[in-house]
Write a protein that binds this DNA or RNA. Structure first.
Lengths: 192, 192
DNA sequence: TATTCACACTAGCGCTTGCTTGGTTACTCA
DNA sequence: TGAGTAACCAAGCAAGCGCTAGTGTGAATA
């Protein structure tokens, strides 16, 4: 059953599942479709995952865990200047969003399909990630780089950035970093 | 079959469908659930709608049409001052989003479930609505109220505002108008 | 060599799905 | 009064769903 292991095989299957979940949506993705994409029969799928729900949870956990790690590292490696930290966080956010796009689209738009247990578990991960954001925004507010209510600002910022998955074209002329910089410039009173 | 009529009965059924689609998601909402909510049997549902897809299209059409009308009226009735127009548009957006919340959540998050024909038809409506936004943002940019690339700014703005459906609590202390004003203040260099 | 294990298979159960069919009821209006 | 029609119902079909049971196989382990 491999309830909670992270074998390379399982990781690969999780990656494929993420892709299908994005393409079709979780509900429309059948275990038979998943199996075919993985090159096995539908029955064999349940050797790797307890049930379909667990595949969804695995996809989201993987993505969120990565985002958290990357953001933490990025913040550790950059200076303490609020403006730099704000830009760094925005860049890290979009970088993760697009290098691990499938997993994050699933996390953002299929979250509600998680059962209660998985949701409770993954909420902690997500909260830890958002806490990084709130801290960075607090500093930026205190330094008067931006203005507004701390709660509202963080919601607006995350909304604007997350929504990019709906329209951003990775093959276009702008890099995720460009996008992040332009966004930070937009909400900062003084144009860079 | 009533292919494209808009009888009061059908409107009421559409409203109920929107609610269920939000609660459960389109795919998980069965025709039997819809019928029960409407107080009829599942077979009777197909007297009002050709198929399940058409119910989804009706929900989204209704919502988008309303948003367009409300935004147009609001812009017609307000002054030509770019700042006022920006605030007006933001207020109209959030006002519609929360008075007709179900339909808009469906439009935002179940768009991909539309078949090609419906999507092509509804795209025009949505584009017309977004065109209003782009015009308002262009004026605001020219007046130097805000700064940045016109394309990016409009995407970021719409993203931040649309994302509010994910966290805004209508029973909280803030009204949608407050929210709109705070948002506009956030992206404008000079605090009001 | 014997045993275990990961991984895959076949076959299909029990159930739900969207939708159809054939018919009934209640109301409107000439 | 009787034709037309909008609205509904009971019954059920064909397809597809998640998932299980039982089995086979080749590689690692004892």
């Amino acid at each position: 059953m491999n309830v909670m292991n992270a074998s390379p095989r399982r990781k690969e299957l999780t990656r494929l599942a993420a892709q299908l979940f994005v393409q079709e949506g979780f509900d429309r993705t059948t275990v038979r479709m998943l199996a075919q994409e993985m090159g096995i029969k539908s029955g064999s799928l349940f050797h790797h995952f307890k049930d379909k729900q667990e595949i969804l949870a695995a996809v989201i956990e993987e993505g969120t865990q990565n985002a958290l790690t990357i953001a933490r590292n990025a913040l550790n490696e950059c200076s303490a200047e609020p403006e730099v930290r704000l830009r760094t966080m925005a860049r890290a956010h979009l970088e993760t969003l697009f290098t691990d796009r499938n997993a994050h689209v699933v996390a953002l738009f299929e979250w509600r399909r998680l059962d209660d247990v998985a949701r409770a578990h993954l909420s902690h991960l997500r909260d830890a990630y958002e806490a990084l954001w709130v801290a960075v925004i607090d500093d930026a507010l205190e330094a008067r780089l931006i203005h507004g209510d701390r709660f509202l600002v963080s919601r607006f910022v995350l909304g604007a950035l997350n929504w990019t998955v709906r329209w951003y074209d990775p093959n276009g002329s702008r890099s995720p970093d460009d996008l992040a910089d332009e966004f930070v410039a937009m909400i900062m009173p003084s144009p860079a």
